[in-house]
Design a protein around this nucleic acid. Sequence first.
DNA 1: GTTGAAGACTTCAGTAGTAAACTTCGAAGC
DNA 2: GCTTCGAAGTTTACTACTGAAGTCTTCAAC
Lengths: 186, 186
Amino acid sequence: MTAAAGSAGAPQELDLDAQIAAYQREFPEVDPQVEKVVTALGRLNRRMNVAYGRQLVDLGISSAEWEVLKALVVVGRPYRLGPGDLAKRLGLTPAAMTHRIDRLVTEGLVTRERDEANRVRVIVELTDEGREKWLQTMRLAAAFEDELLQDLNTSERAALGEILIRLLRRVEDSQPDAGGRLEDLD
Amino acid sequence: MTAAAGSAGAPQELDLDAQIAAYQREFPEVDPQVEKVVTALGRLNRRMNVAYGRQLVDLGISSAEWEVLKALVVVGRPYRLGPGDLAKRLGLTPAAMTHRIDRLVTEGLVTRERDEANRVRVIVELTDEGREKWLQTMRLAAAFEDELLQDLNTSERAALGEILIRLLRRVEDSQPDAGGRLEDLD
DNA sequence: GTTGAAGACTTCAGTAGTAAACTTCGAAGC
DNA sequence: GCTTCGAAGTTTACTACTGAAGTCTTCAAC
């Protein structure tokens, strides 16, 4: 889940086949089958992100805020991390985390306090309200995902998952980690 | 293709199974199979975007610039569009397009001139250099995509494409278009 | 015990985006 | 032929991010 926020409107996309045709016209060496898979993948992902983004708007938080809540929930109780650690996990600079935390504190979704045992450190902790907000996002996301996959039976889902994981492993191998900023979340 | 640019480093991600386990621990109602498919999809897409982004860095352009080149190439000769039309296609505000075009003009990848037949309008046209730059991105992207899909035989590729398109159709139906910004491209 | 270096976070300057105000050209009404 | 309206782009104000500089605490060395 990630996505959407601004609102200049969604891009006006060509039909998938028209897009592939344009690629073939302008760059004949392209393999249409490969391009179709890749383009569909990107487009599906984008649409999903738009959907998640709308759900977040309904819940009154931005996807930037959601990312932070998710990172805190995933580490488990007592739902604490330092700003620097959060920044690494989210792929942001510490400076950006400072501001995100400011907003979340203002909204009561996390607290920020100095670590008394080691006063250089700061501890960001999820509040009950923050945890509840995250649970709400999960309920909406799960409903959307169930609907999205409703046309696929169990074996199709398994096959899709297996192929995606195979592809994922291949990119991760060639991209041992490190790297360039990204855009989305899980 | 879209992606990466900044450089606070890539997010430090949990292992896929560990991530699913965390979701199950914190939100037991979740369907692990569904979550696995969705998470793998998002993660694969992100990794791909990182890869595309690196290629663009190597070629000396940003993904913002690349989006504009692509839109112009896709319309075909004489590779012309107005700023407003470009903004709609890319899902940006006209204001943002003004600045993107500024940069592209400075780099010689597009030209901007008033439409003499209708002096309210501006015409953005791809230069030969801009078209060549786009072709270079396609050559790199195609090589990466071939490598990515090398483990899949033709029927697996076809099956994957078919499923993705089925899912895409479902989201597009429930999301008749309109609305929230997005992040990636094709 | 004071000094110096390292680490963790924040602050500052610069960039790219949105939203909204503004400017200009073209078309229509009278 | 002037006036008004609308469409197309640009400018302005504000937000969120990066990268680099700055501040404050801790730890090690002397």
